[in-house]
């Protein structure tokens, strides 16, 4: 285990039906390594609704409650309340939703739960489109991407919604990004979130989708890493909405990340320049927040 401090026990099992190279399954594997057996997972409609196993199977060794698309935040709130009433403070409730269930249809229930500072971990594994239904755009789909509802020349011209900032604005104890390409960092964040009982912890996990992104399955982790290395998906943590910590500083050009993916293959150098500019500005903003709040605290 050179260099890694990664728990050996897995609570995900083989034989699930995730596509080859599925980033969302790697994400679950890492998350549960940190979470352990005293975890209940709430899953709304998403790829994991299928990967978790059809009747009579389960791909997890912890309890799963599947629920309606828009409801992860609310169902998790109810489950938490029930456990509290039963006197079970040890078990952690972990809502596990895709980007559709988090950024779009589920944002209301999530915001409601987060405003109440419900005591659970909410995880968005973000594969940047509605993959389970066949790659339709979501508000997590990045600028420049083709999907089946942003096809051809109609590739997405809008920016991706910045979910962590929305969550941080609720001033919850912990909001963080994580990547399947950085297992140690990701597991540390889940472990930290697990220990921070008493409020909502939100973790936004970047999870590649070889099928939807039109990338070779073996590049799944590599591309997730490139997203971090190019600051397209910065790894950072926000405590109480104000204390920003950047975990990795990227230095690669965004084109390194974009050019190897089929969903972006129509983009021109001019587009890359525009995207680079966006990413640079976002990064600059993140740095400013980090130093601004540092001065305040």
């Amino acid at each position: 285990m050179a260099g890694y401090n990664i728990p050996d026990t897995d609570y995900m099992v083989s034989g699930h039906v995730g596509c080859p190279g599925c980033g969302a399954t790697i994400a679950m594997k890492f998350a549960l390594k940190a979470m352990g057996e005293k975890t209940m997972v709430v899953i709304p409609a998403c790829c994991w609704g299928v990967i978790a196993g059809p009747y009579p199977q389960s791909s997890l060794k912890v309890p799963i409650l599947q629920t309606a698309f828009a409801t992860a935040g609310a169902t998790a709130s109810g489950l938490r309340a029930a456990l509290d009433m039963k006197g079970d403070s040890e078990t952690t409730v972990m809502a596990w939703a895709g980007d559709g269930g988090t950024f779009d249809i589920g944002i209301q229930a999530l915001s409601g739960a987060v405003e109440r500072n419900e005591d659970f971990i909410y995880v968005c594994y973000d594969n940047e489109a509605y993959m389970n239904t066949g790659v339709q755009r979501s508000s997590a789909t990045p600028f420049g991407s083709r999907t089946t509802t942003t096809p051809g020349k109609g590739w997405k011209k809008n920016r991706k919604k910045n979910m962590v900032e929305i969550l941080a604005a609720h001033r919850i104890p912990y909001a963080a990004t994580a990547s399947i390409a950085y297992p140690e960092d990701m597991i540390r964040k889940f472990d930290k979130a697990r220990r921070m009982k008493g409020g909502t912890r939100f973790i936004h996990v970047f999870a590649t989708c070889p099928t939807g992104w039109r990338i070779p399955s073996e590049m799944s982790v590599k591309i997730a890493r490139l997203a971090v290395q190019s600051n397209v998906f910065p790894l950072y943590e926000v405590e109480n909405g104000v204390k920003y910590t950047i975990n990795v500083e990227g230095s690669r050009p965004v084109a390194d990340y974009f050019k190897i993916q089929g969903r972006f293959k129509h983009l021109t150098d001019e587009d890359f320049e525009k995207i680079q500019n966006m990413v640079d500005k976002d990064w600059e903003l993140l740095l400013r927040k980090t130093s601004y709040f540092d001065r305040l605290t």
Binding site: S14, Y55, S58
Partner: peptide, 16 residues
């Protein structure tokens, strides 16, 4: 009801 009682490891996905 739709409630699991076995694990997915019965699926030999190596055939993919």
């Amino acid at each position: 009801i739709s409630r699991s009682h076995i694990l997915t490891d019965v699926n030999k996905t190596g055939s993919w």
